[in-house]
Write a protein that binds this DNA or RNA. Structure first.
Lengths: 223, 223
DNA sequence: CAAATATAATAGTATTACTATCAAATACTA
DNA sequence: TAGTATTTGATAGTAATACTATTATATTTG
């Protein structure tokens, strides 16, 4: 299975970057190490200067790939959603039963992330942590409407639309398919966050994911 | 009803501020105008210098009330949650039926905010917009665990616990009362955000709130 | 009226988030 | 293989940010 998809490239809207980091060694090092560094010190403290030092390169070289650290965060977010979408398609493609398909989708979207050896320069486990902790900051800005028009969030919207369709396939009369889909996606991230930082308002034992919570929720809601 | 509660003061954890802004004219002007200015230009562009200019006061004077703009955001968030809690208590107190009480709570937490004349220096409608757009940034930081220990998020946690209890009152066997409560609270904010900025992945007609979506969701989930 | 407290004004600092320029290394092409 | 283009690196510079520190001036309170 692994090598079956080794030629695959995750596609990120190309307006997000100045130069595609996938096309060079330096670009890949930028992405790889930005994930590690953002995880380490948080997005607020993260700077291109620090990243430059870490990869023994120059601040100005990083600016040739990404206009700003905000754009880099958009890149990482889009990459994650595209990667998740590819898993979603791959793992639900052959399921014909609508209920089963949706349950599988919820599992994929709320489970603990494992490393994917198809993309060696990206640590998906760390990237997922960034998505949980930082990805909201990519759209909670004053520029969101402009950037939305530019297509920066299309992968994110597409995955929600896809899950929305799976919900409608189970019950075409349910009127809130998209709202429920986005609630699962964002709620999944948020529940992972709460589990880690606010366990007193959480209902998960250690090692458990919110998958069961969401599977039961979605089933009873659209039944 | 209005004047019945005019002596009420919303209580915010006092470690959040250096000097309580409620105790002086300048303090109230700081809070009042920070709400307007953050709404206007966004939290990232907001600075104490700009706020100082706006209120014809000095940057250094604002620093005597709040250590940083992050602390100010924590203050505004806590104020909002405390205000919401007071509404929750007030409006559900006399309801004895557990189902009805919970439905009312969901309504309060997901509805459109109206101005409250009890607190003249705070524009609750604008404050709610800040909560939708910026409040996640108050806890999505590297310092969250330290600040949580300091009690900065206690109001937020209390309101979730309260709704969790209402859920358990309806069905004491439901195992995810707190998770569901936090999903409603955060999901409510997020759905309001999507309605505004990503209508293509939203299911609400203009003027409509996500209340119906959540009332139906919660009812069927815990039934 | 004196003393304490609050506010204002000014200056200063390290860092950030860039932009601009130029040189050196590397790759590609005739 | 020389010539050209592209990429990267090094350095410098800038306006703004997020503060701290100091001193002066109001204002409140005892």
């Amino acid at each position: 299975m692994k090598n079956l998809l080794s030629a695959l490239k995750i596609s990120v809207p190309d307006k997000i970057f100045i130069k595609d980091p996938e096309t060079s060694e330096l670009g890949k090092r930028i992405v790889e190490n930005s994930i590690i560094l953002i995880n380490d010190i948080g997005f607020e403290s993260f700077t291109f200067k620090k990243l430059g030092t870490r990869i023994c390169s120059n601040e100005s070289s990083i600016y040739r790939y990404f206009e700003s650290k905000h754009k880099l965060l958009l890149y990482l977010s889009s990459w994650y959603w595209a990667w998740l979408e590819y898993q979603l398609v791959l793992e639900t493609y052959s399921i014909t039963d609508a209920d089963e398909k949706l349950a599988k989708a919820v599992l994929i979207v709320t489970r603990m992330v494992k490393e994917d050896s198809n993309f060696t320069h990206i640590n998906e486990v760390l990237l997922y942590k960034i998505i949980v902790n930082e990805s909201s900051k990519s759209f909670l800005t004053k520029e969101v409407d402009i950037e939305n028009k530019e297509g920066y969030f299309e992968v994110y919207k597409r995955i929600i639309a896809r899950i929305g369709e799976m919900i409608s396939a189970v019950n075409s009369d349910y009127p809130f398919a998209l709202s429920l889909a986005s609630t699962i996606i964002e709620g999944g991230l948020h529940q992972h966050y709460l589990k880690e930082h606010f366990p007193s308002i959480s209902n998960y034992e250690s090692g458990k994911t919110p998958t069961n919570f969401f599977v039961q929720l979605i089933k009873s809601t659209i039944k």
